[in-house]
């Protein structure tokens, strides 16, 4: 059961990458494709160990780049850096609060694509960048803020469904029961 959490995260990332490639109605509406893997990344960084965070960054980044014109591996680095930074400070963050999750989602939603862009441009690639990039980053940030608390709720539900729950102990004790009537 210990492997269930990373497996669920990995599966979610796989489907998220595919959905980003396949579902385009939000892109047609806003001109920006929402990045679903960033929200699962935030959740993973705040709840998992470093091995899971590293594996998710590697797999998610490579899967994303394999369906994109991005140079191979360019998304791995921003996902890894964001994940490690969030993990580093997770004990200082109020990660149980929805507001904190929203802020983290917004920051990650802006940071990951911005870092990817910087890395690509420094490698000599020529992505489509202009004033509208600010709009793109803003929409990605807002999407991150909206989706991250949702992602937390979904994963918490899944955890309840698939993992053994701790046995609740009650204050009732057999030996302290008052027996009424004649025995």
């Amino acid at each position: 059961m210990r492997a269930l959490h990373p497996a669920l995260l990995l599966l979610t990332t796989y489907f998220a990458v595919y959905l980003q490639c396949r579902v385009t109605f939000l892109r047609d509406l806003t001109g920006v494709q929402i990045e679903l893997i960033i929200s699962s990344r935030v959740y993973a960084s705040l709840t998992s160990n470093l091995a899971t965070v590293g594996m998710l960054a590697f797999c998610g980044g490579m899967w994303f780049d394999s369906l994109s014109l991005n140079p191979a591996g360019v998304t791995v680095f921003p996902l890894l850096v964001t994940g490690i930074v969030l993990m580093w400070f997770r004990d200082l963050l109020l990660r149980e609060q929805p507001y904190a999750r929203q802020v983290l989602g917004f920051c990650a939603g802006v940071a990951v694509p911005a870092l990817s862009l910087l890395l690509m441009m420094s490698m000599g690639a020529r992505p489509l960048v202009g004033w509208s990039t600010l709009w793109t980053l803003l929409v990605l940030g807002v999407a991150g803020a909206v989706l991250t608390p949702l992602m937390f709720r979904v994963f918490e539900r899944l955890r309840v469904l698939f993992q053994y729950q701790p046995l609740e102990t009650t204050s009732f004790r057999d030996d302290r029961e008052i027996k009424r009537g004649r025995s």
């Binding site: 990458v17 980003q20 490639c21 396949r22 385009t24 892109r27 920006v32 494709q33 990045e35 994303f64 369906l67 994109s68 014109l69 991005n70 694509p113 990817s116 862009l117 690509m120 992505p127 489509l128 960048v129 793109t136 990605l140």
Partner: peptide
């Protein structure tokens, strides 16, 4: 499908 990134037309 389409490019999942926002920086390319593919």
């Amino acid at each position: 499908g389409r490019d999942p990134a926002n920086w390319w037309h593919m």
